[in-house]
Write a protein that binds this DNA or RNA. Structure first.
Lengths: 235, 235
DNA sequence: ACAGGCGAAACTTTATACAATCCGCGCCTG
DNA sequence: CAGGCGCGGATTGTATAAAGTTTCGCCTGT
């Protein structure tokens, strides 16, 4: 009777109110509707979702563990504000993990998966065409998660979810120019390589995709609006 | 016992009681005092640590997020029971991440770090010599965490903590023969390579170390015994 | 006028009480 | 005698209330 716990603990449990709160806030962050540093008051969120603070609190704790929310003792929860050092770490980790994920995904390639990938690309293009920046940002991240799901490697998937969420905050904070469509074309190229089962091409394209995203960031100084004294003073 | 311990005059780590519970349970799992499948009742743990269910619950939720505890709705929390598939995923992830961590650790090599590594090796040897299997298991995992701390890469450190904790459960469940001291000699070899700043040797030794650990596993179902919490957590 | 301190309000944190759910056991029934 | 039904105990999920901490405004003293 080794654990058959997989089907329950995963996403589809939408009846769970904690999950609904968590996913709602996560979506807001991933779509750049919630900016880094925003205070997430328990009463406030509870009011929105019609839940008591107890549930809101557990949701916020989960988000804190995922690294997209900071909980400061006796002060409350805030949308995380990754530092440039964090950003470099996140992208380094992605460059390490995602090529491996691609490799596993190619092992699992099937008409059904290719169909889902194609659908997703279409959604991305649609959002881009109608200029829906929020949907574009969200779908761009979901593409990477979709490939991770395809790989069937649940640990990599968990890690990547965390990295994607943080990447979204990082891009919001440090992107140089306006949104140059975080690479729908790149995604299409990656899918093409997956379809051809060309591992080397897929891995190379994923790497250059990540490099390009990171290259669009200016990781010199934290957000221009406010410098943290603690960083400057080395405390 | 809920002694009225004053928060102020107590030890510094007593300020966060949730952490104390989490670390206590984690240590018990890492030292193989808590077996997979063991039920972790909220009242039971709360009694042991003198905390109310609220705090116990948040600690258990954090542990669930780390993958070493399963929470089943309306049923309670149990020590996780990784499947053979989980085991393969964990070790694959470790083989991917740990060589990279070693690389970063070599960048950060310094007398202070070498001192800590040497100290740790001495502790491991001491535990092994006096036949303290529990301490050996714990220290063996902490060695890998120490290298990750040394790398200064906080994301890798977080990932690795999770992988180490799960590895401990996996080794307990699937190890073939008695404890062959999970490689204190290997650790010494890795430290030597780090000291010489020999990246290739360090990475190779880390890889073969992980391979050897995994080779000692037989990935079939274990026999689950049940254990009394109070005996094992004697706080 | 300004620095410093007192005090109230708002918030988080913790504890406790209540409701919902599940499991086990005994009884009834076919 | 076997199998299903229902009740009781126990445990978890949720909400609410009490306690502690921080923050901000106001007031006073220099």
């Amino acid at each position: 009777m080794a654990a058959k716990t997989r089907p329950k603990s995963d996403a589809p449990d939408a009846s769970d109110r904690v999950s609904r709160i968590r996913e709602g806030v996560t979506a807001a962050i991933l779509e750049h509707r919630l900016l880094p540093g925003t205070k997430l008051g328990e009463d406030e969120i509870g009011e929105i979702y019609g839940a008591s603070r107890t549930l809101v609190r557990t949701a916020l704790q989960q988000l804190a563990h995922e690294g997209i929310v900071n909980i400061e003792k006796n002060r409350g929860a805030f949308v995380a504000r990754p530092t440039p050092a964090d950003a470099r770490e996140v992208f380094e980790a992605r460059r390490l993990i995602e090529p491996t994920i691609i490799d596993h995904a190619i092992d699992a390639v099937s008409p059904a998966w290719l169909g889902r990938l194609g659908e997703h690309l279409a959604e991305e293009r649609g959002a881009e065409l109608r200029g829906d920046a929020r949907a574009s940002v969200r779908l761009s991240g979901e593409f990477h998660k979709l490939v991770a799901e395809m790989s069937g490697h649940s640990i990599y998937l968990g890690f990547l979810k965390e990295l994607i969420a943080r990447s979204s905050l990082i891009i919001l904070l440090y992107r140089r120019h306006g949104t140059p469509a975080c690479g729908t074309d790149h995604h299409a190229g990656i899918v093409a390589a997956i379809r051809k089962r060309d591992r080397e091409a897929a891995r190379a394209q994923m790497l250059s995709h990540l490099d390009e995203i990171e290259a669009e960031l200016s990781l010199k100084d934290p957000a221009a609006d406010e410098l943290r004294l603690a960083d400057v003073l080395g405390a």
